[in-house]
């Protein structure tokens, strides 16, 4: 068998449109994941036992189940829940479902990144802030969070890389992203090796810089501590 990349390269614009979908679903999922993840992290360090339990349950459950199942469950379960609660039937757009499903999945991992970053700030810092009359909120925003951010950024970058790669799985719930385009292009061309290698290269354009940044950040974080 001879490799022929010609037909695949002829369809490059089609694949690049898929890359746009990948970037869109990833960006949406990052926003959802970071927001929900921070919320879950705050639950997990809250003084209230039931809240800590809820946060822990979310993290433990999501991290124990394959993304594919979370996505499929999300697509089928959410309409039923909304239907039952509001009485209105809804249709969730596939792209939105992808953003939310992937985002809620990533949130569990990001929550742990946030939590350990926050906990890495010595308790004396909180004490110092409170002692000068700051409220808990001020202490968190002005003293703890800026210091936690330095610990959070390296592993969060790595989580974002994982998220972008994981976005490929959203094709299984019909999100119009790169993997889905690759699949349909392959159906037409029947050249799986060429198609998927080209797609891999397109992914690399986004993911390889992320990998380099993430590795560098992790290295300097390790050297700094």
């Amino acid at each position: 068998m001879k490799l022929d990349f010609g037909p695949v390269l002829d369809n490059l614009p089609f694949l690049v449109a898929g890359l746009q979908g990948t970037l869109t679903v990833s960006a949406g999922a990052i926003i959802v994941g970071a927001t929900v993840g921070l919320g879950i992290a705050l639950l997990r360090i809250s003084p209230s036992r039931p809240l800590r339990f809820l946060g822990g349950l979310y993290v433990d459950f999501i991290r124990s189940v394959p993304l594919l199942i979370i996505l499929v469950l999300f697509v089928y379960a959410v309409p039923i829940v909304i239907e039952t609660m509001t009485g209105h039937s809804i249709r969730i757009d596939a792209l939105l479902a992808g953003m939310l499903g992937l985002g809620l999945y990533a949130a569990a991992f990001l929550a742990e990144v946030f939590r350990s970053g926050i906990l890495a700030v010595p308790s004396g810092q909180r004490e110092a802030g409170l002692s000068t009359g700051m409220t808990n909120r001020q202490v968190f925003l002005r003293v703890v969070l800026p210091q936690a951010a330095r610990k959070i950024i390296p592993p969060a970058t790595s989580s974002i890389l994982t998220l972008v790669k994981d976005s490929a799985v959203t094709f299984a719930i019909a999100v119009p992203e790169l993997m889905a385009k690759a699949g349909s292009l392959n159906n037409g061309l029947q050249r799986p090796i060429e198609v998927f290698i080209v797609v891999a290269v397109i992914y690399l354009a986004v993911t390889y810089p992320l990998l380099l940044i993430s590795d560098r950040l992790q290295r300097s974080a390790a050297a700094g501590s």
Binding site: L161, V169, N186, P192, I193, A200, Y203, L211
Partner: peptide, 23 residues
């Protein structure tokens, strides 16, 4: 190492299963 860490696992699976396998 970098190639396999930077690309989605799903693509690696597709290349092997649909491409290399039959080839």
């Amino acid at each position: 190492v970098d190639l396999f860490r930077a690309t989605p696992l799903l693509i690696q699976i597709f290349v092997i299963a649909f491409g290399i396998g039959p080839a």
